Simulated assay, not measured.
Amino acid sequence: MPRDLPLNSLGLPKAPADTRVVVAMSGGVDSSVVAAVLKDEGYDVVGVTLQLYDHGAALAKKGACCAGRDIHDARRVAEAMGFPHYVLDYENTFREAVIEEFADAYLAGATPVPCIRCNERVKFKDLLATAKDLDADCMATGHYIQRKMGAKGAELHRAVDAARDQSYFLFSTTQEQLDYLRFPLGHLASKADTRALAAKYGLSVADKPDSQDICFVPNGNYASVIEKLRPGAADPGDIVDLEGRILGQHRGVIHYTIGQRKGLGIGGLGDPLYVVRLDPETRRVIVGPKEALSTRVVPVREINWLGDEPFDSRPEWELEVRVRSTRQPRPALVRPLSATTAEVTLFEPEDGISPGQACVFHAPEGGPRVFGGGWIWRGY
């Protein structure tokens, strides 16, 4: 590869026409704009869409990625912009790597985040390998996150638009993957800028609504999906207080999440009660006062570290951490127990921390860099 050429917009020392880019196309406006912009800049663009589940059953379902309608939309964009487009059948991979674990995690009383596992085990693993098989120089996606070059190599940074930032869902991106991936939308100030680019290129998806639900969970009804995958999962049981006193009956542990207050069916007992723990083995939903939800110490495992020095090279790291996608990063001490496990101590307690959620590491004092993260695996 010539070294005397200036770097192109993707940070590679090649002319755009000599740079092949595989674009992961979901059929939505974000990835479609990425493909259109790169094609317009003269890159050798190849669009790839993953069929992740039976899109025949999903044709009537709006608001989810990778359904039949979305495959059609991705193909139309490719045809309009004049680059090749392929659909890959990843149904079996997706079921084994994402859906089955989602069901098992819920049955174990956790609150899983399947979108992270999909990025980790399908999009940034199998699809990325496919991109390399196609001799692509890099793979681009429509995620709102930034990849910047630092003193030690590629770094992960939060998107400029805090409202669109997807760093929580991409914490498990490894350094090797980050070296190959590109995120052309991370620098945009707002989603309006993305839609303006879609309109500029005359894309049919310019006004397409954003996907809201988990793609294989119609209307956000997790319990119905779990019941189909695991018959008997909705067996009823007792709702008990912290001392084990029975307060009522529930309709299946899978219908409840840590921190839930409404829909418990045990009103009239004085102060509001919240779900503080789930015990699938005894089919018990344990409830208590709001203060029982407060947690300062969070055990984390399967850590993916994106720092410049080894994670366990220090006794502790002072970082900011995010324990749920809807929360802001908060100051914490992260104490490595090994290269992939840690004990996270929050400076201020947080409510409703749940096993199965991610704990994402951010730079202290609001810095934009993302240092990876891990999975919360049990509550204290």
Rank of each mutant, 00 (worst) to 15 (best):
P280I: 10
G28S: 03
N304L: 12
R76P: 08
T345F: 06
A363S: 15
H72L: 14
F83L: 01
M25Q: 11
G252H: 09
T141G: 06
D126A: 15
G150A: 04
G28Y: 03
Q177L: 11
R261P: 01
L38M: 02
P355V: 02
V29H: 03
D44S: 09
F347T: 13
Y106N: 13
A64Q: 13
S9C: 03
E343Q: 14
L127A: 12
Y43K: 10
R245W: 07
P13N: 06
Q177H: 09
G252C: 07
G68S: 00
V298A: 03
T345A: 10
Y222G: 05
E309G: 07
P336I: 06
Q212M: 13
K262I: 11
K123M: 07
G63P: 02
P349V: 12
Q328N: 12
I353R: 04
H72T: 12
Q260W: 05
R195S: 05
G367D: 04
K191N: 04
P349Y: 09
D135G: 10
H362C: 12
G28T: 02
T194M: 00
K123L: 09
I246D: 00
E318D: 14
A35P: 02
A198Q: 04
G237F: 03
F347P: 00
G220A: 10
E320S: 14
Q328D: 14
H85F: 05
P310I: 11
K61E: 14
V98S: 05
Y180E: 04
D213M: 15
L59T: 11
R335D: 07
V22S: 00
N92M: 12
S224H: 13
L242G: 06
S294H: 15
A192I: 07
T194V: 14
E309Q: 14
G367R: 11
H157R: 04
H250Q: 12
T282S: 15
G153R: 05
E281W: 11
P280H: 06
D312N: 14
G373N: 00
T93Q: 14
P331N: 07
A103F: 08
L107N: 07
G267S: 15
V160T: 13
Y90R: 14
A163T: 04
R95P: 01
L12W: 08
A358Q: 05
G47Q: 04
L269V: 12
T341G: 01
A108K: 13
G202C: 04
A57D: 13
G267P: 12
K262W: 11
R75G: 09
D18C: 09
T194C: 02
Y201R: 08
G63C: 08
L52R: 06
A234P: 01
A36N: 01
K61G: 06
E41F: 06
A17W: 04
A163Y: 02
F216L: 10
M25E: 01
M139Y: 00
H55F: 12
F216S: 08
R147G: 00
T257P: 07
Q51N: 11
Y168K: 08
Q357E: 15
A57H: 13
D193E: 09
S167L: 07
D241S: 02
F102N: 01
V323H: 11
Y86H: 15
H187E: 00
L7M: 04
V300L: 05
L50P: 06
G268L: 09
T141H: 03
Y201L: 10
P368K: 05
G352D: 15
D44Q: 08
V287H: 04
R327P: 05
E309H: 10
W375Q: 14
R117G: 03
R20D: 02
D241G: 02
I246R: 15
